[in-house]
């Protein structure tokens, strides 16, 4: 798989095959084929847009939940992880080394909604030994993007 194409798309998913062709020297047709193949092989998972929901007054509540679980014979952590990640409320699920096992990012409309999910769905799951919930207070940076408005850089208009 052509990594340069992936890098360009990761940076801006709207870059057209023609533009990518100019940047890489690969023909537009070949670029289109390579992208299709990457989608098929799930190298490219999906195309999405990063939105700063706070700006449109559409506040949502997020929490990071530490989950301590008992690994299961044959399946290890995978089956309990799956039980958790099948819930749409769990936006991100990682297995970690250290003091706890799974880290789950949960989002909801209200604190109540998130708390309910944790107490009624997550914590009672068989194999879950305990949870610690951290509500998110502020997002500074996400996926490499600084969320606060960038100060405009004051470049001179012409420098010789």
């Amino acid at each position: 798989m052509n990594k340069e194409i992936l890098k360009i798309l990761e940076n801006d998913a709207r870059t057209s095959p023609e533009q990518i062709a100019t940047m890489t020297g690969i023909s537009p047709k070949e670029v289109t084929n390579l992208i299709k193949q990457a989608e098929k092989e799930r190298v490219i998972l999906k195309y999405k847009t990063m939105i700063n929901w706070d700006k449109v007054g559409n506040e949502q509540v997020s929490a990071l939940i530490e989950v301590k679980v008992t690994p299961q014979r044959d399946a290890g952590f995978d089956s309990i992880a799956e039980r958790i990640y099948r819930f749409p409320q769990a936006r991100t699920v990682y297995l970690l080394s250290g003091a706890y096992d799974l880290l789950v990012l949960v989002t909801g409309k209200t604190m109540h909604e998130v708390a309910d999910f944790v107490s009624q769905k997550l914590a009672p799951l068989e194999g879950v030994q305990g949870t610690v919930t951290h509500f998110m207070l502020k997002r500074y940076k996400e996926d490499g993007e600084i969320i606060e408005e960038k100060e405009e850089t004051k470049r001179q208009q012409v420098v010789l």
């Binding site: 850089t153 470049r155 001179q156 208009q157 012409v158 420098v159 010789l160």
Partner: peptide
Amino acid sequence: PSGIRKFFDLLASIEGVISLGVGEPD
């Protein structure tokens, strides 16, 4: 003095310009 002083003055008077004139990294 820079041979293109007039051009600089003109540039300063116009808003909404896309500049390909800056000789430094962005």
